[in-house]
């Protein structure tokens, strides 16, 4: 078998999730090639070459792939897809955007968000916000798969793959990339953090998130949020943890003022230890918490920050 993993990167480094996707490829078994496509991303290709288990890195460095727009990227992938039995990418905003487009161009049914590999053609994936786990088998000639990072360990370093240049594919001219507005933070990324402090509607305002930021900074944690907090405009969209936001599984997840809607639990219930602070003794979040405290968050959070 021959597996292509499409790396997610910022030009210099790989994004969290790519190394977990390599681990999923190792479980499928076969020769593993990593594609680094982007603009001015040779450094990221060197990082990918050092992942244990990777045999070859393809570098497609062209302005056509700046920003990772799906149209040109899938046009490139279509030209090389036939060489592989499996094509994998992380089930992040990046992978979810272009992988279905590739899948349709190849006339295969994508397998989304796998959390386990049963065999080379059979995979486990969550459905209904993780309230059911489906085992599915694909008979398609190429398996196009997105991988849930929390289901697989990150692959170690220690590889020494060769890096080959891949000529740019056609310019479809369908979409023009006009830039990104990225949230700036010195805290770890949500999907890579060891500890996450998340706030919900109970925070009451964006200003009050400063309480959580103080706690997060003391713990070296990332700050996340429930959909309710994002929809209310307290924090930007990239904070959202849940079924249709980010899926996280840190060592410690601290849920503050979060009631625990089904779609939020879907994004965090695989965390190792969950603590919940909510003044409502009936909050559904307590059903998944290892430790819960029924108290006003405006009293409990500053105390917690002080005592930790």
């Amino acid at each position: 078998m021959s597996i292509l993993v499409i790396a997610e990167h910022d030009g210099k480094l790989l994004k969290p999730g790519t190394t977990n996707t390599v681990t999923a490829a190792v479980k499928i078994g076969g020769d593993i090639t990593v594609l680094v496509a982007g603009h001015q991303c040779a450094d990221a290709a060197q990082v990918a070459a050092k992942i244990a288990g990777v045999g070859k890195v393809l570098l497609a460095d062209s302005p056509l792939y700046a920003g990772g727009a799906a149209e040109n990227l899938t046009a490139l992938l279509q030209t090389i897809a036939g060489q592989y039995t499996h094509i994998l990418a992380s089930a992040t905003g990046y992978g979810k955007n272009f992988m279905p487009r590739l899948s349709a161009l190849l006339d295969v049914q994508q397998i989304s968000d796998i959390s386990a590999v049963v065999s080379a053609d059979t995979f486990v994936r969550p459905i209904y916000a993780g309230n059911a786990m489906a085992t599915v088998q694909s008979a398609d000639k190429i398996k196009v798969i997105t991988v849930r990072a929390t289901g697989f360990d990150a692959a170690a370093e220690g590889g020494s793959a060769t890096v080959e240049n891949l000529a740019a594919g056609p310019d479809t001219g369908l979409a023009t990339f006009n830039g990104q507005e990225l949230s700036k933070s010195d805290r770890p990324e949500l999907t890579a953090a060891r500890i996450i402090v998340s706030g919900g509607r109970g925070m009451g305002s964006g200003e009050n998130f400063k309480l959580l930021e103080a706690l997060a900074d003391k713990l070296g944690a990332a700050v996340g949020a429930s959909r309710a907090a994002v929809d209310s405009g307290y924090v930007p969209n990239d904070y959202q943890v849940g079924q249709t936001g980010k899926i996280v599984a840190p060592e410690l997840y601290i849920a503050v003022g979060i009631s625990g809607a089904i779609q939020h639990l879907a994004g965090m219930k695989d965390s190792k230890v969950i603590i919940a602070i909510n003044k409502d003794p009936e909050a559904p979040i307590f059903a998944v918490a290892d430790y819960w405290l029924v108290e006003d968050l405006f009293k409990a959070v500053p105390e917690l920050t002080q005592q930790i």
């Binding site: 992040t92 507005e181 930007p236 969209n237 980010k246």
Partner: peptide, 9 residues
């Protein structure tokens, strides 16, 4: 909406 914030196309 992208993982790091917003993207304009």
């Amino acid at each position: 909406e992208i993982d790091g914030g917003l993207e304009k196309l």
